[in-house]
Design a protein around this nucleic acid. Structure first.
Lengths: 247, 247
DNA sequence: CTATGATAGTGGCTCTATGACACTATGTCA
DNA sequence: TGACATAGTGTCATAGAGCCACTATCATAG
């Protein structure tokens, strides 16, 4: 490898072999969020393999160099495996890398979070016979001691979500295809952890033109509510101002 | 590797060898921004090695598994090599991965951007005898055809910066230790690409309590201006509202 | 020693969007 | 038919932004 300058690029590539170099492990891990039972919940998987066998962890794994064309494909593949959901809201959060986060050595993991509607989850999807749980985010750390640095990763994902609820329409992705404004408000309140004023909220959402009426109504034992769907802009809209909540 | 269940973790680790697995290449690339001559500029390096030899690219390279303890260390090391700057504002932007972004095969690169004050750059720092240029962001794509997908990476970094100028105090990191409010406003205007109203800008910045007076003044051929420095909160403050500019 | 030019910094008006909250509307069900 | 529950609105006070003219304070020139 010492006469580089004289090689053409194709000659160089012929001689090149990735295994001549030390490289870190690369994985993709993800926090899959949904709202069920009026709580923000995240999916955990019990590891069936070494290292950290039998410990709870975020779903994830190695890039499949044959199947995955891009990084996001790995995340989408894992998500599909665990939940059956195909077209989630998926966002890359942060990449963690270091020599001591995995006992196997220098490793890198790309963290994603996904938002899915609980209605879209396929239950009993145990193809890998792995043990899987949905855990509410509040008080999670007391009950589950996650493997590796997954606790840090989850925190990063959660903080990103919390931050973006302030100024984006992102939570619409946690709802089914049709929903009422009250449904939407409730989702925001759950993630924000505080109540939101009704009129302001409706103005904010409607003025942004991110949802449209379906024409249908949701009926119940009281006044029916208009149903809305997200439009093209809606799933990732940035407001120009943070949601403030009560003074 | 088929009797995993019976191994203890330490036995597993003893047998484990990273080279038994196909792994993608991992690199770190960065967009180093500064403001000089009243323009936002980025550092480019002419590649001295295959692949894409002699083409312009963002500075970056492999993780040094021995030297670097964390991902950010790789970025900081590269930054120091090129500019001599030690404590920049450094932010991870996005990780790009795919099978065709590098001719050597499946590769992953973690992109960072750095903001540095041009006053802090050590000139003539040619330790690697590499060719290096500072290029203004406007019209860059016409003059430079970057290697690999570095054009996409740079775009991602630039968009992140542009977005964050709207609602964070991030541009303070492009200024020297002491600066006037007018200096600061100018930096915002350069990155935003539009003018900002003086009074509103000053209110916004001063009310946020992110800078403090040094006590010194900057003198010139006109009324002297108070000098400020960034305080602990200042280098990464989030405003609750976007900067709007003139209507 | 004063006038001028240039930039620093402020006073105060208007306007918009938000929080607040009471009020009206419209369904079900007993 | 009236109670209830939730949907949805009218309207006001207020905070903060843009606007822009005004004042302040220096160096420098004549």
């Amino acid at each position: 490898m010492n006469k580089k300058k004289q090689l053409t690029e194709s000659q160089f590539l012929k001689e090149y072999n990735a295994k001549d170099f030390d490289a870190p492990l690369v994985t993709v891990d993800m926090a899959i969020f949904t709202v069920r039972e009026d709580k923000l919940q995240v999916l955990l998987v019990k590891r069936a393999q070494h290292p950290a066998i039998n410990r709870w962890a975020l779903p994830g794994g190695f890039i499949d160099l044959a199947k995955d064309k891009q990084l996001g494909d790995t995340a989408r593949r894992k998500l599909k495996e665990k939940t059956g959901v195909d077209t989630p809201y998926l966002e890359q959060v942060e990449t963690f890398g270091g020599y001591k986060r995995d006992p196997r050595g220098w490793s890198v993991t790309v963290a994603y979070f996904a938002l899915i509607a609980s209605e879209h989850i396929e239950v009993n999807r145990n193809e890998s016979s792995e043990e899987v749980v949905w855990v509410p985010m509040d008080g999670l750390s007391k009950k589950y001691d996650l493997a590796f640095d997954h606790s840090d990763i989850l925190t990063a994902c959660y903080e990103r979500l919390q931050a973006k609820v302030q100024y984006t329409s992102l939570p619409v992705n946690l709802l089914p295809d049709a929903f009422t404004l009250t449904d939407l408000q409730k989702i925001f309140e759950i993630i924000l952890g505080k109540s939101v004023e009704k009129k302001s909220f409706r103005r904010r959402v409607l003025d942004a033109n991110i949802i449209e009426e379906t024409g249908e109504m949701k009926t119940g034992s009281n006044r029916p509510a208009k149903l809305y769907r997200v439009n093209a802009l809606g799933s990732n809209h940035y407001f120009s101002r943070n949601i403030e909540g009560p003074r």
